[in-house]
Amino acid sequence: MTDQTAERPHYQRPGWVTRNVFNRAMSFLTRRGVSVVGSRVLEVPGRRTGEHRRVPVNLLEHGDAAYLVAARGTTEWVRNVRANDGRLALILGRRRTTYRATELPAGARAEVLRAYLARWKFEVGAFFDGVDDRSSDAELERAATRHPVFRIDPEPAG
């Protein structure tokens, strides 16, 4: 499930404005059914408390699959998804869909990162240290080691 290196995982902590203004506004809109450029609210139990944690994320539909990309690196939501064996829910309005996430190895992330950056570089480009959707495969592969990517598949009902 995990793809961690021996070094300390990359993480860019969100600032006060992101945590207290942007994330709250995005969560508010998404919980009311307004998806801003593919936004959803990710819900996953906290790995220490078991309490449900919610954070806005960008759902990327690419090819025949759906993905979540951790633009800021090994975030709390990434750690919680890993600890919860890949189980998570995405919320849009009143619709709550459960998924099973499978983390892609770093070598298989470049194509997904290219698609993600093509769609959201205006929002997340600063976290990729100059790498964007026009970067070479080699540059994307180097960036991929710092940005976890999960393919998500709906859990069967039952």
Rank of each mutant, 00 (worst) to 15 (best):
E155W: 04
V131R: 00
E51D: 12
E103L: 10
R19K: 10
G130M: 08
T5I: 05
G107I: 02
R134K: 11
Q4K: 08
M26H: 03
T75R: 10
F28M: 05
N23A: 06
R79N: 15
N80C: 12
H52E: 09
M1D: 13
V81E: 11
V81G: 11
H147P: 09
E51K: 12
R72C: 01
R96V: 15
T2Q: 07
A118P: 05
V36W: 04
R54K: 14
R146Q: 13
H147E: 09
H147D: 06
A157T: 13
L92Y: 06
N80R: 15
W120R: 00
R96W: 14
A144W: 08
F150Y: 13
G38Q: 05
F150D: 02
G15Q: 04
S35H: 01
G15T: 08
A126C: 07
D133G: 00
R87H: 15
T74Q: 13
H52A: 13
A157L: 11
R146Y: 13
A144F: 08
L88T: 12
V37K: 04
E155R: 09
G63R: 15
R95E: 14
T74K: 12
R100Q: 09
L59K: 06
L60I: 04
N80Y: 14
L60P: 12
Y11E: 03
R95Y: 10
V21D: 05
R109A: 03
V17Q: 06
A83M: 14
R96S: 12
P56G: 11
F127V: 05
R96H: 14
T75E: 08
T74E: 12
A25V: 06
Q12I: 15
A115N: 00
G15C: 09
R100W: 10
T97H: 13
I91C: 12
E141Y: 00
V57Y: 14
G38V: 02
L90S: 08
M26G: 01
I152S: 13
L92K: 14
S39V: 05
R8F: 10
L117I: 08
N20T: 04
L42Q: 02
V124K: 01
S27G: 10
V124W: 13
H10K: 01
